[in-house]
Computed example of a mutant assay.
Amino acid sequence: MNDSDRLVATDGLSTEGGLRAERVSREVGGRLVLDGVTIAPRPGETIGLLGPNGSGKSTLLRLLSGVLAPSAGVVTLDERPLARTGRRALARRIATVQQNAHTQTELTVREVVALGRIPHRRAWAPMSAADLEAVRGALERAGLTDLADRSWHTLSGGERQRAQIARALAQEPEELLLDEPTNHLDIQYQIDLLELVAGLPVTSVIALHDLNLAAMYCDRLLVLRQGRVVAEGTPSQVLTAPLIGEVYGVRVEVLAGSDGPVVRFLRR
C-alpha cells in the first residue's frame, strides 16, 4: 500500500480540513472499548467501518459525531477540536443516521425531514424559503416525494431509513455518519440505500456488517477488532481471506468481481 492509498497519514493528521480522529481511545468502566484509533477520510469519500459486534464501530461513530468525548486523543473538524465547537455548528456540518429511529409523535414524512433544518433556524422561527427548498430537495433525492404527506408510522423499514437519510440531507451536511443503516432491511432496500449514500456529494463514514456490500459501495475500509484497527485501505487491499478469517473466525474465499472483491463464505 502506498502513502496515497492510506486513510491516515503516517505522521499523524492531514493538514487538510474535514473530520478527523487522531489516536482516539474510549474507556468505559475501566475497559478500553476503543484503543488508539486514527481515521482521516478525504473529502467526498465513503469510508466503511467493519468488524464483529463489540469491535468499537458504533463508539467510533459517536466520537466522530461529538456525542461522546474520547478518553484520550482528539477528534477535530477543520483542525479544531470538536470539544471547542458549538453544538449548532456541529449539527450544520455533521449529520448522523442511527440503526433504527422511533417516534411516538404523529409526524408526516415531510415533518420528519424538516427536523433536519433545526440547526439552521432560530428557535420558534417559521420555515424560510431556503428551509422549504432544502426539505423538498432532500425528499426528491431520497425518492420520497410521493410519500411526503404519509404518516411516518405507516412506512416500511426501508422507507423509514430513506426518510432518515432525507432528514440528514436536509441538514445540508458535509459529513454523514451512518451506524449499520442496512440492518433488518430487505436486500433491495439495502442496495437502494447504499446506492443513495454512495452517490451523495458528502464525506460518509458508515458501519456495515455485510462485507460484499462494503466492497461494492465503499471507497476505503477500516477494520476494527477489540477496539483496535487491524487493517485499512481499499476493499481489494483489505478484504483478503486471511484477514477475514482472523477477524471474524470464518473460512472464506475472495474472488475478483466487477464491483470489487466478492467474499464467498465456506462451510466449516
Rank of each mutant, 00 (worst) to 15 (best):
L222H: 05
L221C: 03
Y217E: 04
R251D: 08
V67D: 10
S71E: 03
T240F: 10
R268M: 11
R110C: 05
A83W: 12
R26S: 00
M127N: 06
T46I: 09
T38K: 04
L144K: 02
G66L: 12
R225T: 13
L155Q: 02
A256F: 03
A123R: 13
D146A: 06
V75G: 00
D78C: 13
D186P: 08
L50D: 02
V75K: 00
L200A: 08
G260H: 05
P181L: 10
E45K: 00
I39V: 15
V8M: 12
H102G: 00
S14W: 14
A214L: 10
V24D: 00
S58C: 02
R80M: 11
R42M: 08
Y189F: 12
V67R: 06
D131Y: 13
S65M: 13
G245H: 08
R160D: 02
E253A: 01
E174S: 13
N212Q: 09
R80W: 07
N183D: 07
V109L: 11
R110Q: 11
G143D: 13
L68F: 12
G233T: 14
E133T: 10
E174Q: 14
A101M: 09
E106L: 12
A163T: 05
M1Q: 07
E246R: 10
T103G: 00
I191V: 15
L68T: 01
N183P: 10
E45Y: 04
G73A: 11
E133R: 15
E22Y: 11
T182P: 11
L7W: 11
L50I: 07
D149Q: 09
E180W: 11
L213A: 05
V254Q: 04
G260A: 03
S156Q: 08
A138D: 07
G30I: 15
A89W: 11
L77V: 09
L222A: 03
G29P: 04
T59M: 04
S25Y: 00
D146W: 07
H209P: 13
L177A: 05
L211K: 01
L155C: 01
H209Y: 08
E180N: 06
L169Q: 04
G18M: 15
E79W: 14
I191D: 07
G44T: 04
P173H: 13
A148V: 03
P81A: 02
V238S: 06
V263T: 03
I191M: 13
L61Y: 04
D146E: 11
M216Q: 14
P235Y: 06
L155V: 01
G17H: 15
L19W: 10
M127I: 08
L90T: 05
G143N: 11
L222C: 04
R92P: 11
V229Y: 10
V28C: 00
L7G: 05
V97R: 08
R84N: 09
V254R: 02
L185M: 06
E246V: 02
R121M: 10
A168L: 13
N53P: 01
A101Y: 10
P242E: 10
A231N: 11
L239V: 05
G86K: 01
I94R: 12
G137D: 15
R92N: 02
R26L: 07
R267I: 10
L185Y: 03
A214N: 07
Q99L: 13
Y189W: 14
V252R: 00
Q190E: 13
